[in-house]
Design a protein around this nucleic acid. Sequence first.
DNA 1: TCCTGTTGGTGTCAAATATACACAATTATA
DNA 2: TATAATTGTGTATATTTGACACCAACAGGA
Lengths: 225, 225
Amino acid sequence: MPLEDYPRPSVTVDVIIFTWRNDELEVLLIKRKYPPFEGMWSIPGGFVEIDESLESAALRELKEETGVRDVYLEQLYTFGDVGRDPRGRVITVAYFALVPAPLIDPRAGSDAAQADWWSIYDPPPLAFDHARILAYAMQRLRYKLEYTAAAFELLPETFTLGELQAAYEIILGEELDKRNFRRKILSADIIEETGDYQTGEGRPARLYHFREDAVAEVKARRLFP
Amino acid sequence: MPLEDYPRPSVTVDVIIFTWRNDELEVLLIKRKYPPFEGMWSIPGGFVEIDESLESAALRELKEETGVRDVYLEQLYTFGDVGRDPRGRVITVAYFALVPAPLIDPRAGSDAAQADWWSIYDPPPLAFDHARILAYAMQRLRYKLEYTAAAFELLPETFTLGELQAAYEIILGEELDKRNFRRKILSADIIEETGDYQTGEGRPARLYHFREDAVAEVKARRLFP
DNA sequence: TCCTGTTGGTGTCAAATATACACAATTATA
DNA sequence: TATAATTGTGTATATTTGACACCAACAGGA
């Protein structure tokens, strides 16, 4: 049973990268340089080569298009509707990742595609069915935050409890009680004080950092009811 | 940017079908009639045609190979490692479904492939990387049961609380307290008494049925801690 | 027919967890 | 130095979970 006898779907990978920036949730998008959808924004991605795994392809595309490397990818969903790409039948395996914004300079992509962060709440029109993929990724992110402490992966290395709570509230879309939030996070034993303080308007806030040795454990743990 | 210029991966769909039969969890497998892995058992599936969606392909293959139709499929994961199929580069999108055993006669497949139920706890050696896919599906099923009331989808139309609890216990791999289990299930308001009883050894047991109008609601709800 | 084995069905109390809620402490800035 | 803004803290109540033991109803065999 040969494999190349009749027309078959092509396969791409797309990677949704979220971060926390400017007090809101943002996503990394690239501006398309070629047709179709030339000049429109889209989720970074590209075709899977014959000799690379899906995850390798996702990491390669990400590096080529955005300069981003060394991120932890999680498979999101595979979108395969017939009409989703005007070039022909293309099935895309979507991945997503959470990264701290300061680690990434979107303009470092080696093929100089224009890449930039966009607010999740005010994204540009997107190519293909990428708006749908983005919506699905958002839903998954909310789900993930409800069940785990994943928000740390979005924040910078040190952060205050106020910032952490703000991130949870915006992503989950509901207000949380300050005292209950702090108690839950602190008793979960996944962050530690750095000893430093962040100053600004109002009383200075303690800075915390995520306990890296708790990553694996935390990823499986349920934090919010 | 043409789509057919260089070698690309092929795409298949595989469908893991679980049911509850003979007081255990079973999975539907088919015996391969052609190489590779001729004569070995495998998860039903096949190539995605150019003009059908992934889910359509999954339903079609399922009907062709097992006679099973009208099941609700959920996308599981996409497996795309380079060496997983000896015929060449094949990426497979795996789906899974929960069905009540009595609804299905595995031998009704139109191309007369041999299809049969196998215990999850004693499966035959499987072709390709299907053992891995099956293990992943099992994990997902357990996860699903922990978080929702999905076990109903496996049982026949009417069932006793004893049967329901037994299914949960075997799938989750732990014993549950009878009184607490009943309290939780009944207070969740997702099953109703039929009014009939099932007789047998010991005191007759009330029969219940799942409240179909609660399906959507229940799928999102968390039942076990 | 009655004894026995087997499975079905029920309530309570204690512990753990979640929720609601208000004010003093510390700084920047006007 | 007064004011505005933000951080940081404890307790009481309600809800949920977990542990636990006995009687009820039937089948089958003595």
